[in-house]
């Protein structure tokens, strides 16, 4: 049983005109097995929240705490956070030229498991993880995300989620850019990861369609750097119908 606890999180980014505050005090608790959906207008700070928890160097933490099972994540380096059990499926997965998917996955699995996976079982493990996401085995020999289509990148993220078995996963718009079949395939991957590892999920999305596959326990409305309303799945339906007008001041 794991708990990710975010308390009063404030985050700024450095700009030419000095630091700009993006997150203005975020409180959120995610436990194993729970699914929290975050919905909110463009630019409200959802990706900032995801990156800040994962430790992206661009973001300055100016206040608050983030702990995983009571341990301070903000003191940790990016890789330490991952080894503590955190996973971020990125909105825009990064291309890494010259590094093959298979080399990347094996290096990551070695780091996370503390020892190199046995070659015999590993090959099968990767094959079945790729098959589960309907990825052509040829992707293993391609360079990480290089030349992948938008949807292929997202499948690759969720394939890693299943393979690397974190405790808490943040999925930043994993559903964006997916065709109907890919949406189902990717969603089923998340549902499997939840069932197999009692994964806690923070799911950032603009659309309710993914929530039909991955049923949220809680829905949070995000606006102007903070959570402005919380509710159950019905809140997502209401947002889809009415938009965010009542939550944004301008």
């Amino acid at each position: 049983m794991s708990t990710l606890e975010i308390r009063g999180l404030k985050v700024s980014v450095d700009t030419e005109n000095g630091p700009v505050e993006i997150l203005k005090g975020v409180d959120l608790t995610i436990k194993s097995g729970e699914t929290h959906a975050i919905m909110g207008p463009n630019g409200s700070g959802k990706s900032t929240l995801a990156y800040s928890i994962a430790g992206h160097p661009k973001y300055q933490i100016t206040g608050g705490t983030v702990t995983l099972d009571g341990v301070d994540l903000l003191e940790m380096t990016v890789d330490e956070r991952a080894r503590a059990g955190l996973f971020l499926a990125m909105q825009y997965p990064v291309e890494v030229p010259g590094v093959s998917v298979s080399n990347f996955l094996r290096t990551a699995a070695t780091a996370l498991r503390g020892e190199a996976p046995k070659l015999r079982t590993w090959v099968g493990e990767v094959k079945s993880a790729m098959a589960a996401l309907s990825m052509d085995p040829a992707f293993a020999e391609r360079n990480v995300n290089e030349g992948f289509s938008g949807g292929e990148k997202k499948r690759h993220e969720i394939m890693q989620l299943e393979l690397l078995k974190p405790k808490i996963a943040i999925l930043d718009e994993t559903d964006s850019g997916l065709d109907v079949d890919a949406l189902r395939i990717v969603s089923e991957g998340v549902v499997r990861a939840k069932a197999d590892n009692d994964l806690g999920v923070l799911l950032i999305t603009h659309y309710t369609r993914i929530l039909r596959y991955i049923k949220p326990d809680f829905v949070h409305v995000f606006a102007d750097g903070r959570i402005v309303e919380e509710g159950g799945p019905e809140l997502a339906e209401k947002l889809e119908a009415n938009g965010y007008a009542e939550y944004v001041s301008k």
Binding site: A54, G55, H56, P57, T77, V78, D79, R81, A82, R83, F87, L88, M90, P93, V94, E95, V96, P97, G98, V99, N103, F104, T107, A108, A111, L112, N143, V144, Q160, L164
Partner: peptide, 23 residues
């Protein structure tokens, strides 16, 4: 690139090595 690799648990020295080898 370093952030992406490290967010998968890969230590910074190993991430650098991967990026340079890839280059």
């Amino acid at each position: 690139q370093l952030f992406y690799l490290m967010s998968r648990g890969i230590a910074v020295e190993d991430a650098r090595r991967l990026v340079v080898r890839g280059f």
